[in-house]
Amino acid sequence: MGLDKIGIAKRIAKELKDGYYVNLGIGIPTLVANYIPEGINVEFQSENGVLGMGPFPFDGEEDADLINAGKQTITTLDGAVFFDSATSFSMIRGKHVQLTVLGAMEVSENGDIANWKIPGKMVKGMGGAMDLVASADNIIVAMMHTNKAGESKLLKKCSLPLTGVSCVKKIVTNLAVLEIVPEGFLLLERAPGVSVEEIQNATEGTLIIKGTVPEMEA
């Protein structure tokens, strides 16, 4: 039970507010762009140097000089602008981007995030993630609640090398929506058909349950 990747993206899309500039990370976060609520105008920033990113191009219309940070071919919308990498990260560090959505391997109950390195196994690099998490006021993590081995990714303390400290504000997983509060992971919503017990069992860090936890609206 619980949400699939599209379900996670749809739930995160509800966090978009009119007038937001938004940076979406690679993977589930990219899908958020497909579910912008009606009546909401947002612009997507990609850290390789574009603001006003549109959908993927039609077959045959792709342009090698027009990609997003995931190196995928893209299009631009009216009002779009290109800029260099230093300007791009001025937007990010300077807090001109209102929302960052990114994936994670682990999140700890104080908001630390790890998503760039598994020592001895996988070292691809942090890309722009460290700059993004160090500065954004509003960071939402999109991820599965547990890893492929079934182990919790919501921990007391991250075991992998950190990407940033005390920065994550909200987490949307296949099982739940949680907020980072001083005491730990505050359970805000359950995914459809998922019980509080299931979420508790899948959460290694401190889970805070206040009253009746509502089920996510479809």
């Binding site: 791009s88 990260f89 560090r93 942090m126 722009g128 460290m130 700059d131 160090a134 500065s135």
Partner: peptide, 25 residues
């Protein structure tokens, strides 16, 4: 970090020997 890489190159060309950034703390 990508933003630090960009800024370190920019700084190198702009006569700024070093700078402080929150990225990577």
């Amino acid at each position: 970090p990508q933003g630090s890489l960009a800024e370190r190159c920019r700084a190198g060309g702009a006569g700024i020997p070093a700078f402080f950034t929150p990225a990577g703390y």
